[in-house]
Nucleic acid binder design. Structure first.
Lengths: 339, 339
DNA sequence: CTGAAAGCGCTAACAT
DNA sequence: ATGTTAGCGCTTTCAG
């Protein structure tokens, strides 16, 4: 059993060599070393159960092999899949991961980014609140490795990994039309800054247009807060009984929607067809099984981390990549044809 | 805009004082300082946008204000709630969080714990694979701050934060009996090491006994892997048509169960009453709404982190706490009385 | 009230 | 092939 912290000096002494030699061998620079020396050092390391202090290493080398991820929401399962992808990549690439939750608060977001910087993380993956424009710009200017995921930040010359939300909205709504719906409502969050919702709604509009509808037929219900969702949806549906198709741009809203429909005794898919966003774990198990737009959340995380680490390693600090994943329509009963 | 990394020396020079003074003031030891000096230093810090290097700080002070969390599963929403609790506490207490996923693999678990140690985290929260007994013991002996969550490790003198699983199982099964079920099956994962499942099943047995059943009536279905769940459940139900109540000890298994029941055309709650574990986001939205055993996942995370930080701060390194949260029965349609 | 100097554990010139 | 030396940026005695 080890008592005190054992340092590289202890190993050096034990092996009868200098700290430099130990350091070199441990870092793979043993090209010029005697097999015996190597053996001795490795032996000493083992006997003493030596574990290098990553702080000291990082301080010296200005590289920590740690990346940070700034999430803005721990409520939606989508982010857990993303996180799993990021974590897997970190493991594969020899990085460790710091995590935090801005909870959508720009102040907290800035605080966390600063903390990550003070901890000398090599870079960050961030789902931005999109409300700290100056900060984001500063990071880019300082060439701080960064990958923005899921959302777009206007005019920001940074790596960006997203899913094609316009496409997602289009797929959903076009499918509703194809299955015989004529008055389709889009359900979305109200948030001026978040590209995600806007784009899905844009896809909704494009699908309607492509099918010969005009602007007067657009019907977008914006929810200010999840807690208000039930009531707002109920009122909207009461007001317009013609609605026979609903495209929900968010899976948490979908669950509320399902409850409202149940309460109003509206049957799915007979009275109303619905398409949700994100092929969640529960999507195919609710009643009726839910047609969804599936996003490759895991891959989103995986590729984001890969891209970040790529940027960290290559010192080509100016090139910026834009990765766009494609969503997918998963058809289930909730949108069955009722013609 | 700042060009180069600004260090404490730059601030000192700018303020016309020594590094020592800057350090003291920045760390709250300004009791002996002239208001002017303080003002000057703070001014310089602001002008230079100085951000202390946490690596250097940690190297010197042997304290990083970082804790690590070792999870064993990113698939179950339960862990996301736990994580949110941990993260909130970290934020409140001025800590940052490192995260990793052992994925149930003891080798990976050990690797991650070692990495966290090398990074000098002040302590860890861990949902253990329970297969690295020697390692856990070593950590305890070395007085490495640690909180074990959700599972129990036999003979380990460490902080432990769990939910009362026996109670959970008891509540579920007692409820099924009260609502008129007579042949009740428990659905669980097969895993010799994990206390969680064993305890829930024990609660199942105790409830049966308390209601006058004998051991012959115990019916426990062990699933080896989620992928085999559907088939295994289907076979069991085929074999024993008498079963009219099912207690599922895991929410992922519950979803499979629901599918099987649908396929076999068994109606819930008329033909079979079911009670699931974890009051997931979707529990009340599936068909029929699911009666569940609710666990305070968020609080579990929150209190675990608090306990860990408490241990880190107090140098009383021998006292160990055992926190047991109580589960709760949430009654919905899936277990409605059909007498 | 403030500063000089030593050193945390490691790496990387620059010797030899 | 290996060692010496000088820091990385910070905190902390110990002096003054």
């Amino acid at each position: 059993m080890i008592e005190m912290k054992v340092t590289i000096a202890d190993v050096a002494k034990r092996a009868g060599v200098s700290k430099t030699t130990v350091s070199r061998i441990l870092n793979g620079n043993y090209r010029h070393n005697t097999p015996e020396t190597i053996e001795n050092v490795l032996q000493a390391v083992k006997e003493l159960e030596y574990r290098p202090n990553a702080l000291a290493k990082g301080l010296k080398s200005m590289k920590t092999n740690v990346i940070g991820i700034v999430l803005s929401n721990f409520k939606n399962e989508f982010w857990f899949h993303v996180l799993e992808g990021v974590e897997d990549t970190c493991n594969a690439e020899g990085y460790n991961l710091m995590i935090c939750n801005s909870d959508g608060d720009p102040t907290l977001e800035e605080q966390y980014i600063r903390e990550f910087q003070m901890r000398q993380v090599d870079g960050i993956v961030i789902n931005p609140t999109v409300q700290n424009q100056t900060l984001y710009q500063e990071l880019v200017e300082n060439k701080f490795p960064m990958v923005v995921i899921n959302r777009k930040v206007p005019d920001l010359h940074a790596n960006n990994v997203v899913v094609d939300n316009v496409k997602g909205g289009y797929l959903a709504v076009n499918h509703l039309i194809e299955t015989g719906r004529s008055k389709i409502m889009a359900l979305t969050y109200k948030n001026e800054n978040i590209s995600t919702w806007q784009e899905r709604v844009q896809g909704y509009k494009e699908a309607l247009k492509a099918n010969g509808y005009n602007k007067e037929s657009f019907c977008v219900l914006e929810i200010e807060h999840l807690k208000k969702a039930f009531k707002t949806i109920e009122q909207a549906l009461d007001k317009d009984p013609q609605i026979d198709g609903i495209f929900s741009t968010n899976n948490m809203l979908t669950l509320e929607l399902v409850d409202v429909l149940k309460k109003l005794n509206l049957h799915v898919p007979e009275d109303i067809g619905i398409v949700g966003y994100d092929d969640t774990i529960w999507a195919k198990h609710i009643h009726p099984p839910l047609t969804t737009i599936k996003q490759p959340a895991y891959d989103l995380g995986k590729e984001s981390a890969k891209l970040l680490i790529e940027q960290i390693k290559s010192k080509d600090t100016n090139s910026v990549k834009n990765i766009i994943f494609q969503p997918e329509l998963v058809i289930r009963e909730s949108s069955s044809n009722t013609d």
